[in-house]
Simulated assay, not measured.
Amino acid sequence: MPVYKNEKAKGDKKWYYQFYTGKIKNGVRERVTKRGFKTKKEAEKAMIEARAAYQKGEYLEPSKKLYGEYFLEWLKSKRNLAESTIDQYDSYFRTHIEQGIGHIPLAKITAHDIELFVDSLQKKGLAPATVKRIFSVIHASLHSAEKKELIRKNVANKVEKPQASTRRELVVWEPDFVSDFLKQTKGKSRYWIAIYLAIMTGMRQGEILGMRWSDIDFEKRNLTIQQTVTKKRQIKPGAKTKLSMRSVALSPETIEVLKEHRKNVIVPEMVKLGPDYQKNDLVVCTNFGGPVTSRAIQKVWDSFLKQTGAPKITFHDLRHTHASLLIKQGVHIKVISERLGHSSVSITMDTYGHLMPNMQEDAAAGLDSLIKTTSTNR
């Protein structure tokens, strides 16, 4: 059998196979060689598969392109994905994939390589859900490579899919704590308004950063979400989904807080800079009118948590806090769903249903006020 062991090869993958195709190319008998097997048995099995594929005309010449190079080309071609999703995948690549398996040739990447990579992510302490998403991205990219016949098969199919743990328990603040927190932090940063709006409207961070003064109807106390700001500080028309393009009612106090912010922060800067002020019409903006980065908001958020000694929650948890405040008031779940811009009420129920422990009890007790079957002794 034309299977050999190269004692000079580095590491433990010293076995390789080689066979002649029966064709002559440039006066030389054409042969196929593939290296990098740990055992003779693995090499023999791979050679048998390669020979069979060659006879059927299905053999693919191994590509010398690195997986990292291919991944970036694949990501660039995904024009149907939302920009935020593209940014997330790119972040996975730069932070984890590139250094983990990006250096391996696309044609030589194995299921074992991916298993070791997944293990390394888990050892880093990444959340199970994050590990699962990164694996799914790798699987999708290799699936595309298989369809384009760049590789014979998607080796990720042989890897057990990482399991995400149960959903993280939502951490929300109580009404009294929210009030104290806002009072303690007000006036300590121009970006305080973003935190206030997250609590009072339940909007996503990108929606808050993309909010314009022209989107607000001060008389009807209503705002319309029509654009967002991406993590790359780009203003993007539209929202996360079609249902995210929505109207959100504002409380009387929220209207007054917005007016105060415009009067004390925005207008003075517009007057000071004059024509140099960027006319983006943004409510939350830099001191020259430009869009704000999520990093800038995060820096202020972390500072406020430290200053107040508040329980550590994420900025996004303020959206959950908003939902919990509405639930405490007995607001109908459909109204909450509409305010949050969920694609369906079922998503809202799945996310916040556990915050309504007394709903069935209250419903059962309420029936007694309608139906009377027992007599009352007077």
Rank of each mutant, 00 (worst) to 15 (best):
D368Y: 12
K299N: 15
T21F: 04
R246T: 15
Y352E: 06
G274S: 08
G11V: 09
L223P: 01
I86K: 01
I255W: 05
I193F: 00
T224Y: 14
K25D: 13
Q298V: 01
A50S: 15
I151A: 05
L142C: 03
K148F: 07
A46F: 03
E146S: 01
S179D: 13
F315S: 00
K240P: 01
S179L: 11
A43F: 01
D362G: 07
K231F: 06
S375G: 10
S144R: 02
Y20V: 08
K76I: 03
F19S: 05
L243N: 15
Q184M: 12
T95H: 14
H322P: 00
K76A: 13
L318C: 13
R295S: 10
A145L: 04
K23G: 07
E253A: 11
G68N: 04
T95W: 11
F288Q: 08
K34G: 02
S179E: 13
K259Q: 13
G57P: 09
Y59M: 09
F288R: 12
V171H: 14
R190W: 04
T166E: 14
R262L: 08
T201C: 06
I208R: 04
R190L: 02
G102H: 11
P175R: 09
K328S: 11
M200T: 15
P105W: 07
F93T: 00
V155P: 00
